[in-house]
Design a protein around this nucleic acid. Structure first.
Ligand code: MN
Ligand code: MN
Ligand code: ZN
Ligand code: ZN
Lengths: 136, 136
DNA sequence: AACTTCAGTGTAATCATTACATATATGATA
DNA sequence: TATCATATATGTAATGATTACACTGAAGTT
């Protein structure tokens, strides 16, 4: 997704596509990682020397309101952010601290119903040791 | 579970059963809620006028190490704590902010396997609107 | 009693996040 | 183009949860 396509995409969601906004979106889109605000800042400051953390917080807030991005917390005390592409859950390795995406198909589950509760969102976190770390 | 039984229980897990420790355990055991440190403090200060938050943090840390208690975070920025009795997941109502326990039996799932990953813990959070709030 | 150990407390430091005020860019209007 | 209005971006300060640290005091041991 190039900058022009991102700009259109943001406009379609009612967000004016300023340069920092486009770059933050692009960052999340290209890496498909789960960065903290600090990580985003440390990476993008190379590209946008005037960038401030406040701008990152504000921009992510906008994206979340437009349901382009979502945030979640593991047990650390920093929020993590990721672009919303399709539903999946997360696995965190206790050894290498990597966070893996896990497609829903791979965990056999259907938690769509609970009594008469309306369920809008399901978050699943797995914790353990990843394949790579187990091999050592 | 009375104070004597709790004292024994703590001893069995290598924790000296001081008065504050017993009361904090009792608090979590009796209420079966998901309090923040602040809530624990504000409630127990009535019973233990000299209690400090540091003591609560230390005590919960001990309990967590002994796997008597676990902590988790929703999207707020305060950790929540609960006693470990049996596995279950959580539902948070977006209207009344209540946190409900949901037995695993009620959500049809078996995420025990993923490739060759070793899965030690599964956390499931549901989000939506609870029965009570829907009725209004 | 003297000594050791450890639980408990209070204060200060840390760090993520938010609030706020100011500066800058954009876009419309005259 | 000059002027004005509005939205965006930035920097600094405030907030609030958690942790670090140093001290106090109780309990037990010799
Ligand atoms: Mn993900
Ligand atoms: Mn629970
Ligand atoms: Zn790993
Ligand atoms: Zn409710």
């Amino acid at each position: 997704m190039d900058s022009l396509a991102i700009a259109d995409h943001l406009k379609n969601h009612g967000i004016k596509p300023s340069y920092p906004r486009i770059q933050i979106y692009k960052y999340l889109y290209d890496r498909r990682s789960h960065p903290t605000v600090d990580q985003i800042y440390n990476d993008l400051i190379k590209l946008i020397p005037t960038l401030s953390k406040t701008t990152i917080y504000n921009t992510l807030g906008l994206f979340i309101n437009a349901t382009l991005v979502k945030s979640f917390m593991l047990d650390e005390n920093e929020k993590r952010y990721e672009i919303i592409i399709h539903d999946h859950s997360h696995f965190k390795c206790e050894k290498c601290n990597s966070i893996y995406d896990i497609p829903y198909d791979d965990i056999d589950l259907l938690p769509q119903q609970y009594n008469n509760f309306q369920i809008d969102e399901v978050q699943i976190f797995l914790r353990g040791i990843c394949e790579d770390c187990l091999e050592q």
